[in-house]
Amino acid sequence: MDFTPIYLTLKLAAITTLLLLVIGLPVAWWLSRGRSFFKIMLEAVITMPLVLPPSVLGFYLLLAFSPQHGIGLWLQKTFDVQFVFSFKGLVLASVIYSLPFMIAPIKSALQQLPVSLAQASYSLGKSRWQTFVNVLLPNIKPSLLTAIVLTFAHTLGEFGVVLMIGGNIPGVTRVASIAVYDSVEQMDYHSANVYSLILFAITFVLVIAVFIFNKYQLKSPLE
């Protein structure tokens, strides 16, 4: 039994979640402040992966990062980086695909905080950064945890987008969801069952943990 797909999946989910936390926090904060046409457009683009078939997103990423032309060729020539059929490509696709799962809960939580909280902090001479770290962030902890877990769990289950840009290279891009499909194709139901059970167990524990944590915070993680 080869557990590399499970290891690759967990590694991909951890890196994606970490990257999205760094990208998502400032973007969600910026989106939560006021409305403009540009912000609405950007939010629509960020939300697209929720409704777009993963294979469509994967297809366009495959075209965009193909080393034969465009950005892919430029990245290959300039930085010797290739996204297609590599783990780096999986990370890039996952970051784009899971973007709304990180940004939406954080943005919504920030919008629900009274404006006067930040204003009170500013009146004490605190900068936007100090206010964000000391006042805003600690008061959206349940939503932050929900965003982190949803992103992690969603990345664990990615299939279409990952298959399109990464293919099925053992030890490199063959993550658990692809290993399940591949095992079934080869009539290896035992392996498919083991991979599926492990994914199911990890996801279930994560979701239960969020519900328990948020119960103590008197808030549903779905709010």
């Binding site: 006067s116 909280l117 204003q119 009170a120 009146s123 001479g125 008061n139």
Partner: peptide, 27 residues
């Protein structure tokens, strides 16, 4: 506002839910 440093008492108090009384003042 950070440079004006005008003390402000908000009608809805605008207290920080994550901070204790002492932490409010220490902040």
């Amino acid at each position: 506002p950070q440079k004006r440093l005008a003390g402000f008492v908000f009608q809805d108090y605008a207290l920080f839910p994550n901070m204790t009384v002492l932490e409010h003042l220490e902040y």
